[in-house]
């Protein structure tokens, strides 16, 4: 059992938890992930390590309550335990302190973009961070991201905060203004990563993306997280999760991510139904 030492609601949909997991905290690096299972009947889901503290032995996860499992996880409170918590899995981000990089985070993807930006920043890299959100009320980690970058930009789809527009607009604006990035790191929804990669390909800037497909074991056993990179089949859990974005087949990844959409919606409906029953009983 893995105890939740701290819980913080970052917005109405996104939650941060610090979980006691000393073995993982001792070893994990930016870009790696954990797999967790909430309870005996639960599924195994991957979440990227958002932060860690080697002294206190804690690992921070940030998740959006989007399906049944993340909703159940969100119902747990400080002092409660997560049944299974395993890692660190995947290959850590290759951090090069000599570079000038642009890190792009989209929505809850900022929870993954932030530790990568921080790792580069701590290593001495010149980090420009562009964070995109739908709207002002779902902005997360603003202060943290500011502290992990030398130049920080927020954009929102509806213009309620920062500049109105998409992360790609901001990135292109910076490039056209003469910023010379050695590398771009894009983490967020598949569609966002796809369009960042199309843009950076045009300007020939090497781009890494962090993939987050459906997984079961997370240790290379089931092959369910496979994707096509440069025409070859790769497993996100052991070959990634970071890949050269210019080689990733995003259309296929988007298609594969929808495999269980119906089943996930049904599970969510059942959860809502039983929660309503519980509320009724009270």
């Amino acid at each position: 059992m893995y105890k939740i030492l701290k819980k913080e609601e970052l917005n109405s949909q996104v939650t941060l938890m610090e979980v006691q997991a000393p073995l993982i905290a001792k070893k994990c690096l930016a870009g790696q992930f954990i797999i967790l299972r909430v309870n005996e009947l639960g599924e195994r889901i991957p979440l990227t390590v958002a932060d860690y503290n080697r002294e206190t032995g804690t690992v921070t996860i940030i998740f959006q309550k989007i399906g049944k499992t993340t909703s159940q996880l969100g119902m747990l409170n400080q002092g409660d335990c997560i049944l299974d918590f395993v890692g660190p899995l995947g290959i850590a981000t290759h951090v090069d302190g000599a570079k000038k990089i642009a890190v792009i985070g989209g929505g809850v993807g900022c929870a993954i973009a932030y530790p990568q930006a921080k790792a580069f920043h701590d290593a001495g890299a010149d980090v420009t961070l562009i964070a995109g959100f739908r709207s002002k009320d779902i902005v997360i980690l603003e202060n943290e991201m500011k502290a992990a970058s030398s130049s920080f930009h927020i954009v929102t789809d509806d213009g309620t905060y920062g500049d109105k527009g998409l992360v790609t607009n901001k990135l292109e604006e910076l490039i056209l203004a003469g910023e010379k990035f050695d590398e771009v790191i894009a983490i967020g929804p598949l569609v966002m990563m796809k369009f960042v990669c199309l843009l950076t390909k045009k300007y020939e800037i090497p781009t890494m993306v962090s993939m987050n497909p459906v997984m079961i074991d997370g240790t290379g056993m089931c092959g369910c997280c496979r994707l096509t990179v440069g025409g070859k089949v790769k497993f996100a859990c052991v070959d990634g999760p970071d890949f050269d974005g210019h080689l990733v087949n995003f259309d296929e990844a988007i298609q594969r991510s929808s495999m269980y959409k119906n089943e996930e919606r049904q599970a969510m409906d059942r959860l809502n139904h039983s929660c309503n029953l519980l509320k009724g009983a009270k």
């Binding site: 079961i216 074991d217 056993m221 089931c222 092959g223 369910c224 496979r226 994707l227 096509t228 089949v233 296929e252 298609q255 594969r256 929808s258 495999m259």
Partner: peptide, 14 residues
């Protein structure tokens, strides 16, 4: 082979 509905035996059995 990456269409939805193609599994490795490991995935299906797991």
């Amino acid at each position: 082979e990456n269409l939805n509905g193609v599994y490795s035996a490991n995935e299906f059995l797991t």
